[in-house]
């Protein structure tokens, strides 16, 4: 190489390498960008939103408000999509969102046996186990056993309902408000709400249990 713009790095094995998946993603993104279907900046914004703005904390806010505000709770259980919209969210995939309430008599757990329908706008991206076949098939057959594996033991008198999401309907669990949380602000309440408690594989945290 004697051209003016030759590389100073002559180590031919020093080239870069992209994995097959990276190559395919770049190829698709280039094509979609060239054809005007997507803008790279908009894609970056979506990725960033997944990581920060849309996490389980949006769902936690909704749950905390339902705990603190009986009118909102009523609205949420009647029409979750509409109630969540009043909080200023812009639901992306949650047009048909249904909230199911946990009580001492009934514990709800959400699963999707087809693929992995999930209220991303509230809970962020689905955890890996949610997308796994063992979780999907076992939850339908043996929800109590799955809950035990997650460290949740419920009284035998509590009925467990399994909700199978579809592309049209997504479910979010309204966990029971933990004992000892009277007098907490909505912000403080929201910190007690875990992602798993909104899937139904966990319970809300007890105050002070960090």
């Amino acid at each position: 190489m004697t051209t003016q713009d030759h590389h100073h790095d002559h180590d031919h094995s020093g080239g870069s390498e992209l994995s097959e998946m990276q190559l395919r993603v770049r190829a698709l993104e280039t094509i979609l960008t060239e054809k005007g279907y997507v803008e790279p900046a908009a894609l970056d914004a979506i990725v960033e939103a997944c990581e920060t703005r849309i996490g389980p904390h949006n769902g936690a806010r909704v749950v905390a408000k339902a705990w603190a505000d009986p009118a909102f709770k009523k609205a949420l259980l009647e029409d979750a999509s509409k109630a969540v919209a009043t909080l200023g969210h812009l639901p992306r995939v949650g047009e048909h969102l249904v909230a199911v309430e946990n009580t001492p008599q009934t514990h709800n757990i959400v699963v999707c046996t087809l693929c992995s329908c999930y209220p991303w706008d509230l809970l962020g991206l689905p955890p890996v186990w949610y997308k796994s076949t063992p979780y999907r098939s076992r939850t339908v057959k043996d929800p109590r056993g799955v809950l035990r594996d997650f460290g949740v033991t419920l009284p035998d008198s509590t009925e467990i309902r399994v909700w199978d999401s579809t592309a049209e309907t997504r479910f979010v669990v309204l966990p029971m408000r933990p004992a000892g949380s009277a007098g907490l602000s909505e912000d403080e309440l929201a910190k007690l709400v875990t992602r798993d408690s909104m899937i139904g594989t966990g319970l809300a945290r007890a105050p002070g249990a960090a």
Partner: peptide
Amino acid sequence: VPGFPIDDNGPVFREPWEAQAFAMTLA
């Protein structure tokens, strides 16, 4: 559960390309 992946409890992209694929789909 055999074969059950451990969840690191992040909003779960294991690699950046997964997030990119996800973002393209939403777009």
